[in-house]
Each structure stands twice: as structure tokens, then as C-alpha cells.
Design a protein around this nucleic acid. Structure first.
Length: 221
DNA sequence: ATGACGATTTACT
DNA sequence: GTAAATCGTCATA
């Protein structure tokens, strides 16, 4: 399973004591959040205390009732997407294709049901966490296969609907940690159309997907 | 009650 | 490149 172990220096070491992203980070313009999340660290703490983590390297913005690719298009509201109507800093986890989970970070406020889909992570080497992630992704043959897609990273981090509606600011199941300013400053942001939303008319072409330019952990080049 | 479909992944030709 | 997997949700009846 570990024939794919990374080269030295390939994966970020966890930085202890990094502060969490706070409420105000999420309660902003959704595209700003989607860009701002790149390079930040997503941390999942399981019930047994183990922590699984990765740096966010790819996101997509979903802009609410107008956005024909969003789950809240035309103001649609149901039990499934209720979390998108919560305040910024809430987790929105949905189940799709009968087998996959995807996680979003809710932005702005309850009047603007918008969110950012997390599409790919660069796994952190965090003690046993890399091995733990690999256990959740038995089909992954290389470290770049572990979290290079929205459903892959949810599987790797044990994220499912039990985390839907979770509090990313004050909760203890899932949160985000602020990367060092120097790391963010060197992050080049690329953008393009979102993946898998061809049904969304004009909105399908909008450049609302963002990724770290040149990063090999993104879901597609 | 029934049928279509999906913010995907994987295996296979 | 194409297709299967697999089921909760939603629109229609």
C-alpha cells in the first residue's frame, strides 16, 4: 500500500498551533472564500481521536438561487440542502450517485444560500494520518489518488452525512486551520469552469473553479 | 407509486 | 475513450 510514499518534502508537515479560520472568514463573498481556502488546512478529527488532514488545493463556488448549477438554484430548499441556509462556517455534506459524499463550506449568511465545494486536498503527513487515509481509500495506488476529487477526499477523511450541518468554527469534528502567510503568498491561483455541471446553461461556463496552479494533487490538470 | 437523474469514481475497451 | 455502479431526492401521476 505504501509503494506510493511521497518524496521527502513533497507533503506538508502539520504546523502545530495554527489558528482556526474564524466566522468572519466564511461570512464573505463566496468567490473570495473559494480563492481564500486554497492553501488552508482541512482537519478531520474522528471519534477515536485520530486526525486526518490535507491542504486545500481545489475549490468551486456555488452562488445560490441564480446559479443554475447550485443545489439552491431557483431558491430550492429541502432537508437535503438545509445546511446551505445556515450561517457561514457551517459544513454542508451531501450524498450523490447512490454512493458518494461531497463536502462544502457554507458562506455568507442565511439569506444567501451559497457554498464552496472542496474538490481536492494535498494530504498532510501527520503521524499515522496518511496511513489512515489510505485505509479509507483501498483503491488508491498513488498518494495523488487519495484526495484528488470531492468524493475521494470525503472517503479519505471519513466525512459523511453525519457531518452535515456541523460547525466548522466551534465544533470538534471538522475545522480549517489558517496556513502560514508565507505559504499563501506563494500560492498561484488558476481558474476555469466547474466540473460536472454541463446542465447549468450559461452558468456551466463561468470560471468558478479554482485551484493551486501546477499542483499535482488537483482532480484534473 | 413510478421514473429520471445526479456538484462522481472506477473499471474496462 | 465509454459504461457501470447504486440510491436518495424530486417531479409527475
Amino acid at each position: 500500500m505504501f509503494d506510493f510514499l511521497p518524496q521527502p518534502g513533497d507533503l506538508p508537515r502539520p504546523a502545530e498551533g495554527l489558528p482556526r479560520l474564524d466566522r468572519s472568514f466564511y461570512q464573505r463573498d463566496t468567490v473570495a472564500v473559494a480563492r481564500g481556502l486554497l492553501g488552508q488546512r482541512l482537519v478531520r478529527q474522528r471519534s477515536d481521536g485520530t486526525r486526518l488532514a490535507g491542504l486545500i488545493v481545489e475549490t468551486e463556488a456555488y452562488l445560490g438561487p441564480e446559479d443554475q448549477a447550485a443545489h439552491t438554484k431557483n431558491g430550492h430548499r429541502s432537508a437535503r440542502n438545509e445546511s446551505m441556509y445556515q450561517q457561514g462556517g457551517t459544513g454542508y455534506v451531501y450524498f450523490t450517485y447512490g454512493m458518494h459524499h461531497c463536502i462544502n463550506v457554507v458562506t455568507r449568511d442565511a439569506r444567501h444560500p451559497q457554498a464552496v465545494l472542496i474538490r481536492a486536498l494535498q494530504p498532510c503527513v501527520d503521524g499515522p494520518s496518511l496511513a489512515a487515509m489510505a485505509e479509507q481509500r483501498p483503491g488508491a495506488k498513488r498518494v495523488t489518488d487519495l484526495c484528488s476529487g470531492p468524493a475521494k477526499l470525503c472517503a479519505a477523511l471519513n466525512i459523511d452525512r453525519a457531518l452535515d450541518g456541523c460547525d466548522l468554527v466551534g465544533g470538534d469534528l471538522l475545522w480549517l486551520e489558517r496556513a502560514r502567510a508565507r505559504a499563501l503568498a506563494t500560492t498561484r491561483i488558476a481558474s476555469g469552469p466547474r466540473v460536472g455541471v454541463a446542465y447549468a446553461g450559461d452558468w456551466a461556463d463561468r470560471p468558478l473553479r479554482f485551484w493551486v496552479g501546477g499542483n499535482r494533487f488537483v482532480s484534473r490538470g
